[in-house]
Amino acid sequence: MPSPNRRTTVSAPAVDAAALSRAVHDGQLVAWYQPIIDLSTGSAVGVEALARWPRPEGMIAPAEFIPLAEASDLVIELDLAIIRHALADLRRWQRTRPGFELSINLSGRHLDSPTGVTELVAMVEAASVAPGTICVELTETTRPDAADQGAPALEALRAAGMSVWLDDFGAGFYNLRDLIRLPVDGIKIDREFTAQLEHPRAAPLIGALTTAAHQMGLRVTVEGVETTAQADVVARLGCDLGQGYLWSRPLPVDELEGWLSAAPAASE
């Protein structure tokens, strides 16, 4: 497995919503990717697409512009712009890596919008990629106005062949009750739990969540894995997938493709 990329970026001056809107409409935001690893084999089975905003004066930190987008329906346009780029890359990757998965972030505002989900389904169909390789991660920072009302939209995504995941599980809006009432296929355990694995209660909690998820037929990803020791623990607890700096930081597409060329594929 290649060593993790240690590239750093410099935060540019803070921006406002108007500048972000122009950037989205002008195509300034791009997709970077973080590999997702099968913990049982160590192979790269997919990537998560993440929004990045490069500017001449430096890289705008996601923490500076994502909250701006989520304050309005601008986040829908931002999500779809990143997804459009990522689907084009996925189509190319699947020519040599059949079954390679793409995780995409979707704000709860898509579920509130009458066209948010239909636009995504149409985009995936037009991209000529395998829908079953698209994992839709529902971000917790902005959930739909009523989670139960969002269930039909999630069913529409699943009917189109995509899987639905609850992102940052355990550290935000989504909770155990949502696993019962929402039609989902997996959970991504928040990095806060991984960071506290040295605490005697952290591993039992992750293990319990994983066992419960598996009994419901769900898959489990653990994010924020930074050390081999953490990877060994979550694998022993039964978690399916891992993501974190142990393997790689988020990378621009050219660097990601170099990383993939040296990483074992899922079939190896």
Rank of each mutant, 00 (worst) to 15 (best):
R109I: 04
G170L: 05
E101W: 11
L138W: 04
V129L: 01
S163G: 01
E137P: 09
D148V: 15
Q149R: 15
V136R: 05
G116S: 02
A151R: 09
F173K: 08
R191L: 11
N105P: 09
L176D: 11
W165H: 11
D190Y: 00
S163C: 00
N175R: 15
P114W: 03
Q196L: 15
P114S: 06
G116A: 04
V117K: 00
D178C: 09
N105A: 04
L138Q: 08
D112P: 06
T139Y: 06
A147P: 10
D190A: 04
Y174V: 06
S103N: 10
F173H: 14
I180H: 15
P183E: 02
D112Q: 04
E155V: 10
M123E: 11
F193M: 06
G161H: 00
S113R: 11
A122E: 15
T141N: 12
E119H: 13
P144R: 03
A151C: 07
V136L: 03
L154H: 01
N105S: 01
L166T: 01
E125R: 15
S163E: 00
P152V: 06
A127R: 04
E192K: 13
R181C: 14
V124C: 07
R158D: 04
Q149P: 03
R191A: 12
A171F: 10
I104C: 05
L102G: 00
G132A: 04
